[in-house]
Amino acid sequence: MSASVSVTPPTPSSSSPSLPVALEGLQDFGLNQDACPRRAKQQLDLILLAIEALDLGGSEAILIVADELGLQDIIKNRVNLWQIRSTNPLRRFSKRRPLKQSEAKALVAIICYIARRLTVVVRQLLLVEQQLKEKGQPLDQNFRLADYLLRFRSHFRQRMNPRRASVMEYGEEDKLNALALELLEQLLFCTGTAGAQRLWVSLFDGEV
């Protein structure tokens, strides 16, 4: 089976007038078909999970933002969004379907848009984490941080398949907390001027 991978030059956005503005600047990668690497499927869903843990209205926000950004043609409705997110192989009911690059781009645009709105809380939580770590104090000393970690753990356990070995690795609370914090850092990088391009390109690291 061929696993050849090559990079196509970035297509100028002007050549595809139907492309939503939010997806401009995200180039296509010529893998051997229009699909995203496994790690991308996993990571996008997990970052969304972190957003849901940060923001109580996060799940709704994802759909609303999809509309605001004009991505209705790619993320049509709630069920469709679940289907796209369920390409995450760690999910309990993982779907055996590819994640199209257009779908992944839409998720990237949504993640970065929401991340920007959550900038303040993301920065605060990371600063608190750093301070607690340096003082050698447990992370649940801080109410907001503890709250985020608790919600993330509970979302993760609810939705990921405990029979997958890679999910089992997160059986311990500490490991799941570490994952939650890693995702929080990733969200911080998504808040920047070039957040969307950075996140998008990073999904293909080691794949081209």
Partner: peptide, 22 residues
């Protein structure tokens, strides 16, 4: 301890799998 640990060991497999996911 990145979450992707198991996945990345087999990029080739993942690419093959992506083809089959279709």
């Amino acid at each position: 301890q990145k979450v992707a640990t198991p996945a990345l060991g087999a990029i080739g497999l993942a690419v093959a799998a992506a083809a089959l996911f279709a």
